[in-house]
Amino acid sequence: MALERELAAYMQKLPELKEQEGKFALFHSDDFVDVYSSYEDAIKEGYNRFGLEPFLVKQIQATEQAQFISRIVAPETTAVSI
C-alpha cells in the first residue's frame, strides 16, 4: 500500500518530533529526512530529493487532529490507522 513504510516511520519517529508540533516532516521509505516550517517547503524538498519516487509529508501532531467535512461524502479510505 502506498506510503505504508513512510507512515510507520513517522509513527516511530513521532515521540522525538513532538517538540516541533505543527511543522511538516518529510519521510522517504523508512527514512526520516527533515522537518520544515511549511507544507510547501516540505513538498518542494521531497521532489528535489526524490523526484517522482513516493515520499510522505506529514504535519507533526502529538494527537492526530482529523479534518472535518460537513457535507455527506464518502471518503476514499485506506486501511491504516494513525
Binding site: A2, L3, L7, I43, G46, P54, F55, L56, V57, K58, E64, Q65, A66, Q67, F68, I69, S70, R71, I72, V73, A74, P75, E76, T77, T78, A79, V80, S81, I82
Partner: peptide, 21 residues
C-alpha cells in the same frame, strides 16, 4: 500519487475518522 495521509471526519464516517490519501 499520494504524498500524505490524514484523518477525516464526514457525516458518513461515524465515530472514527477515515484515513484518506
Amino acid at each position: 500519487q499520494a504524498t500524505g495521509k490524514v484523518a477525516v471526519h464526514t457525516p458518513t464516517t461515524g465515530a472514527a475518522p477515515a484515513i484518506c490519501n
